[in-house]
Design a protein around this nucleic acid. Structure first.
Lengths: 351, 351
DNA sequence: CTGAAAGCGCTTACAG
DNA sequence: CTGAAAGCGCTTACAG
């Protein structure tokens, strides 16, 4: 469309420039083999008429097939956190199928570096045009993207970020800030003098993301609300001694708990079994077990990061970058969503 | 794509059925003029091969132009609430431009039924294929959609809903529930015995939406938290006497205020000027003035309803219904988003 | 360096 | 009731 609302076609530009459509196409796609004189003339006309290519026609004519690869942790059932990004990836795939885009999904075991490495090899073997991944293992991710960089294959990180790499985009939370939000909410609902617990669940090293959340929480409590009556507690839900220790600690004076990974339900279970009434619990991520405790009132707030959208937008960003050739935001921090029993339903039903 | 990953074309179906592509097309689009025998044969093949039309090709070949009309309140500057839905409508328009869709936007004066009626006439004159509107005026909306129903023109409501009409979709909050959320938040942050104010700002009748919110708030306070220490206060921010009265009322014992329309900033201003410290204020909608008071800490929570997305999804729903012919959700309740000073930034920056 | 021609998958008059 | 042909706007070998 130009200013007059008429659709400008390559054919129109060609006849105005006194050349054939093929020549215009060469200019548009910088394929060379055009005299500088013609090139400039054509570019001028394109600019003046504000020519916008018809992407529908381009896609239909284009023989090029694009192959995207995604690499995320595997999930065993629909309860798993990683089902959501996968759903988003599939939704985007369906939407761009007719644009000759194929998306191949790869999965690795979060507890096995080897499986990550193996999948990376498989991905490099299929020579993808773009890659979407969750960079769970730092060193292996760096090794992978080095190879992608060499081949000029763009890649996008979701869920967590590794700074200093050449990913065209990151889609996920600012985890430090999401710690801030959790601390702020707790600050609203527990009395000023109450004791607070920052809980880590499980025996593995806390992820990058959990670590940053923890930093955010502590920073807020210390510097904004001026508190220092918080302690850190580890809980191994597989270990009855650990559970007992945890139970004893929270039994006295503790009024608020923030769980820094997605396993708030483990704490909720203990709170419920013990019959503790005045404890406010805040967690992350909408795992079904977390949601149940939220609805029951055992968990006060859950903080969510739109995982489905991370997968969807990730694939769409590759598409926009490679096919539509629009600019992509380097850092795309998703909203830090606050859920209670009262607004969770419409959040879950949406999309 | 079929199960084998091969792309099935109309041509393929035609040769399998021993007919020409034209005949297959007639069957696909129910244009008749095909023997029942051929029709059934072709439908069987389509089903077995799980044929999915190439929408890109369809769109390119299709001579049909679709004209959509939108009708929303006018806005004077980018601060206005109604800028956001309009942005969403424009974003969707751009995205589907190459599918031969034109969107014409109409605006009316929220304070003038006449302007609404006038625009309705204009919309009917251009004979749109689909209409998106905010049904601010009930009777006039009913009169409009009666005419649209006669012509089988689909229409979608955003922002607020009118029950019992044949709109193909509604996109907006469940306002009663969003009242629930506000009351729930206030309940968390004010002491059990504290006095609460439900405030209406302005002299015009409260909208449907504000009324439903108010019902939700009262229902929650009475039935869930078992409170009856709340009062309702009107504030006319243009009237200094009204302001004085409001100021006096909230000066004593009141610890929480919920503003049921989008003008929480009017109350925030009074709270700030008066220097009241222990009042928790909750409002709706992300007007720039509301956002400023949220960041300042005068407003504790804002509840938002994704207005940009309402406009975007509204147009995309018309597109999907008319062009792609997918099923549309009749009621599409958007998430009731909870914003604090700590998570507002990422919410605003995100598309 | 350039242009004419064929083709992407679907739709639409048109002739029979 | 049916098929052959032309066309949507763009891209891609191919011949010159």
């Amino acid at each position: 469309m130009n200013a007059l609302g008429k659709k400008i076609r390559i054919k129109d530009i060609a006849s105005l420039a006194g050349v054939s459509p093929g020549t215009v196409d060469r200019v548009i796609h910088n394929r060379g083999q055009v005299t500088e004189e013609n090139r400039l003339k054509i570019l001028k006309i394109i600019d003046e008429l504000d020519y916008k290519p018809n992407l529908v026609a381009r896609s239909l004519a284009n023989k090029k097939n694009y192959l995207f690869a995604s690499l995320c942790p595997e999930f065993l059932n629909s309860n798993d956190y990683w089902k959501a990004p996968d759903d988003g990836i599939q939704r985007a795939s369906r939407e761009i199928l007719n644009f000759n885009i194929t998306v191949r999904r790869f999965y690795f075991d979060q507890n096995s570096v080897q499986s990550f490495q193996k999948k990376i090899k498989e991905i490099l073997d299929i020579k993808p045009d773009g890659v979407l991944l969750s960079p769970v293992f730092r060193d292996e991710t760096i090794a992978l993207v080095k190879q992608l960089d060499e081949k000029d294959v763009p890649y996008i990180f979701i869920d967590s970020n590794i700074e200093g790499l050449r990913n065209i985009s990151y889609l996920g939370h600012n985890s430090f800030q999401s710690g801030y939000v959790a601390a702020r909410l707790l600050d609203y609902i527990v009395p000023a003098e109450a004791k607070i617990v920052i809980a880590r669940i499980g025996v593995t090293e806390p992820s990058n993301q959990a670590t940053h959340r923890e930093e955010g929480i502590k920073h807020y409590l210390k510097n904004i609300s001026g508190k220092d009556n918080f302690i850190q507690l580890d809980l191994d839900p597989e270990n009855s001694k650990s559970i007992e220790r945890f139970r004893n600690q929270i039994g006295k004076e503790v009024r608020g708990i923030i769980v820094i990974n997605s396993k708030a339900f483990e704490v909720a279970r203990i709170v419920k079994e013990t019959g503790l009434k005045d404890i406010n619990l805040i967690g992350y991520d909408l795992l079904p077990e977390n949601i149940n405790y939220l609805k029951e009132g055992i968990i006060s707030f859950l903080i969510a990061q739109r995982p489905e959208e991370q997968g969807y937008k990730g694939i769409m960003s590759l598409f926009n970058h490679l096919v539509i050739k629009t600019d992509i935001e380097r850092e795309n921090f998703l909203p830090i969503d606050i859920l209670t029993a009262e607004n969770i339903e419409y959040y879950l039903n949406y999309i």
